[in-house]
Design a binder for these strands. Structure first.
Lengths: 359, 359
DNA sequence: CTGAAAGCGCTTACAG
DNA sequence: CTGAAAGCGCTTACAG
C-alpha cells in the first residue's frame, strides 16, 4: 500500500513518459482526462498505465493543486449515544461511496480529544470540506467550523448558522403523516414515545406528531409525548407502564425509532394487548428488524444514500455562500401490519387505509 | 480547512525561516522535533509557529518522505449486519484516537464497491497500513491484502494467513468463565444463545461455552447451542420458545451479546420466569443497557480502546515479518444481578459466588 | 549547531 | 496537439 515499499521503484509519470516517448505534461493530461491529447496517444498511454501498474500519487497531486481530494468526516464527542443508533454506519458508508464516486476519499476524525486537535487534523490534511453525519445542536464543532469559514455540511441537524449548510430528511412530515394515518383509522388515544431531546431527528418527529394531534382537534381524546433513549429494553419497560396506566391505555403509539417500537411491541404482547387490534404501533428508521417483528412494523425509511450523496455534492459542487444552503429530502413510509385497519368502528365505506404506499 | 483558501497566503516553512532569519532546514528540524537545533532557536521558532498560525502541510511531508501518515480502515461489504453491532463505532473511535496520538490520521474506506476500487484508494493515498476492525473469515479483502504484502492488522478475527496480523480479545475464555460461573452456582440446564456463525467473536464465544460444558461432565444435565442475529426482538422470540420447551426450560442462558440477553430477559419476564431465581442470564459487550436491564446483566467488556491502540501499534511499530504477529487481550467480566446466587441448592458453605470481581 | 541545494511526483501556464 | 520548465511545501544527505 505504502508507495515507498522497499525494493521496487514505484512507477511514476516520468516512467510512463519515457516509455511512451512523450512529455510528462501529456501524461498528466490523460491522467486527468483533459483535452488536448490525440486519441491515439491517449489510448497508448492508457494501455501503458495498465501494463506498468501505474497509479497516480495523490500526495503529489494534492501538493501541486492545493486540493486534497479529501473530505473530513467528524463524529461528535458523545459517541456513546450515537453508537446505539444503527443508521450512522450506513450513512457513513453512503458518504464514503458518494465521495469515492467523485474521486474523493474520507478522512475520519473522531472528536474524542480536544476540539483544537480535531480542527488541526482537518487543517493539516487540507480537507476540501467537512461533513458532520451526526451533527447535534450542542456540538461545539459547529461554531468553530463556522468561524473558520470551512466548507461544512451537517447531516440531520438544521442549523441557523449562516456559514453552515445542511442536508436532512423530513422527519416531521413523516411523523405527521403516520399520526394522521392512525387518527384516520379511528385511533383516539395517542402517545408519542420519542427519542432523546438532544437528537434533532427526535425533536422533529415529536413535532410532527404534535402537529397532527393539534389539527385533529376533538377527534383525538388523549395525547401525550414522552422521551426515552433509543433502546428496546428501556422502551419495553416504559411501555409497560404506559399500557397499564390507570387512566386507560392508548390505542396508538408513534415511536421515535424501530428499537423503541420493538420494545413497545414486546410489552404489548406481554400484557395481552393485541397489535394492531387494540393498539397501533409505528417505528422509524426501517431497520432490518422492522419487517420481522410480530406483527411487522409500519416504519419510515430515511434516504440514507441520498443524504450522503447530497451532502457530498453540496460540499463539492458549490463554493461557500452559493445556494443551496440546505437540502431537504423525503422519507418513505412503509405501511405494515402493526397499523392495519381501524380499531373500533368496523371499516366504513370509502375510508382511509392507504393503499399503494405500502411495500 | 483547505490549504489554498482564496485570499490569504498560507504560511509555509519559508515564511517562518525568513522571519526567524534561519534556514528552512532548521525550521524543518524543529517541526519534526529532531536534534541539532539550539534550545534558544527552537524556542523562538516555536513561538513563531503559534504567532503566525503555522501548521505543517502534510501532503508536502508525505511527498518528501514517502510516508503518508495515513492508516486505512476498511469496513466489510456486508455492512448491514455489522451496523447492528454497537461496538464498531467505539472501536473505530479507538483506532482513530490511537492513530492521532501517533500523528497519523484515518482514511476510511467502505468496501461497498469493487474490491479493486477499495485497494486502489488505499494504494493511491499510500496508506502506511490498513486495519480491518470488523474482519470476518469470508472477507475477500484478506486474501488481496495478503497478496499485496500490505501491512495489515485485523481486529476480531484470528487469521492463519501468515502475511496478516491480528489483534483480538479472549471471547472464548470469557464465555468459558461465564459458563463455569453458572455451573458453580448450581445451574444444570444450560443454553448458549449465540450470535451468527460468520462473526468470529460469536464462534469463539460458543466455543468457550462448549468447553466449559464438556469439562463439567455429568454436573450438567442438559446443554444446547443456538445461533441468532444480534437483535433483542428476535432473541426474545427465540427465548420464548426455548423457555417453554416441552422438555423443560433451561436454568441458565449464556447469550452471545447484551442485545440478545436483553431479549431473553424480556421473554423471561413475560413468562413469569424469575431472573436470577429460576434463570441465570449473561450478556456480552457490556453495552450501556446492560447495567440498566431488570435485573442488571452480568456481561463482558471488550477492551475496545486497547484493541484499537494495539492494532495501531502493531501497524506502526513493527515492520512486516517481525513479531508479534498477533496480540490477544483480556476481557473483563462484570458480575451483576442476573447471575446472582445458586438456584436450587441453598447456598452451601464455602461456595463459589465470586466476590471482588464485580463492579 | 546550521545552511544550500536537490529531490519527492505531480500540475500548469506559456510557448510552439 | 505537444513539450520545457517552474513551482507546490516539505525533508535530507552533505558540507561546514
Amino acid at each position: 500500500m505504502a508507495k515507498g515499499e522497499p525494493g521496487e521503484h514505484n512507477v511514476t509519470i516520468h516512467d510512463i513518459a519515457r516509455q511512451a516517448g512523450v512529455s510528462v505534461a501529456t501524461v498528466s493530461r490523460v491522467i486527468n482526462q483533459q483535452p488536448g491529447v490525440g486519441a491515439e496517444t491517449r489510448a497508448r498511454l492508457e494501455r501503458l498505465f495498465a501494463e506498468l501498474g501505474y497509479s497516480v500519487n495523490v500526495q503529489a497531486q494534492q501538493l501541486s493543486t492545493g486540493r486534497s481530494k479529501l473530505i473530513g468526516v467528524v463524529f461528535p464527542v458523545e459517541i456513546s449515544r450515537i453508537v446505539l443508533h444503527p443508521v450512522y454506519l450506513p450513512l457513513l458508508g453512503a458518504v464514503g461511496d458518494a465521495a469515492a464516486e467523485r474521486g474523493h476519499a474520507v478522512l475520519l476524525a473522531t472528536s474524542s480529544g480536544h476540539l483544537d486537535q480535531t480542527l488541526d487534523v482537518l487543517h493539516r490534511h487540507g480537507v476540501d470540506g467537512v461533513i458532520l453525519p451526526a451533527a447535534g445542536p450542542a456540538d461545539p464543532l459547529l461554531g468553530a467550523l463556522a468561524d473558520l469559514e470551512a466548507r461544512t455540511v451537517l447531516i440531520g441537524h438544521r442549523t441557523d448558522e449562516p456559514q453552515l449548510r445542511w442536508v436532512d430528511s423530513d422527519h416531521d412530515v413523516a411523523a405527521y403523516r403516520l399520526t394522521r394515518h392512525l387518527i384516520d383509522n379511528g385511533r383516539r388515544r395517542l402517545v408519542h414515545l420519542g427519542g432523546p431531546g438532544d437528537v434533532s431527528a427526535a425533536v422533529l418527529r415529536a413535532k410532527g406528531f404534535v402537529q397532527a394531534i393539534e389539527e385533529a382537534g376533538t377527534r383525538v381524546s388523549f395525547a401525550a409525548v414522552e422521551q426515552i433513549s433509543f433502546n428496546s429494553s428501556l422502551a419495553a419497560a416504559r411501555a409497560r407502564s404506559i399500557l397499564t396506566h390507570p387512566d386507560g391505555p392508548p390505542d396508538g403509539i408513534v415511536c421515535g425509532s424501530d428499537l423503541i417500537a420493538s420494545g413497545v411491541l414486546l410489552a404489548a404482547r406481554e400484557l395481552g394487548i393485541s397489535v394492531p387490534g387494540d393498539l397501533a404501533v409505528t417505528g422509524f428508521d426501517d431497520l432490518e428488524l422492522a419487517a420481522h417483528t410480530a406483527p411487522p412494523l409500519t416504519s419510515v425509511r430515511m434516504p440514507l444514500r441520498e443524504l450522503g450523496a447530497a451532502a457530498v455534492s453540496m460540499l463539492l459542487d458549490y463554493p461557500n455562500g452559493v445556494s443551496p444552503r440546505s437540502v431537504l429530502l423525503n422519507q418513505e413510509i412503509l405501511y405494515r401490519e402493526s397499523t392495519e385497519g381501524p380499531r373500533q368502528p368496523p371499516r366504513a365505506g370509502g375510508t382511509s387505509h392507504k393503499p399503494g404506499e405500502s411495500q
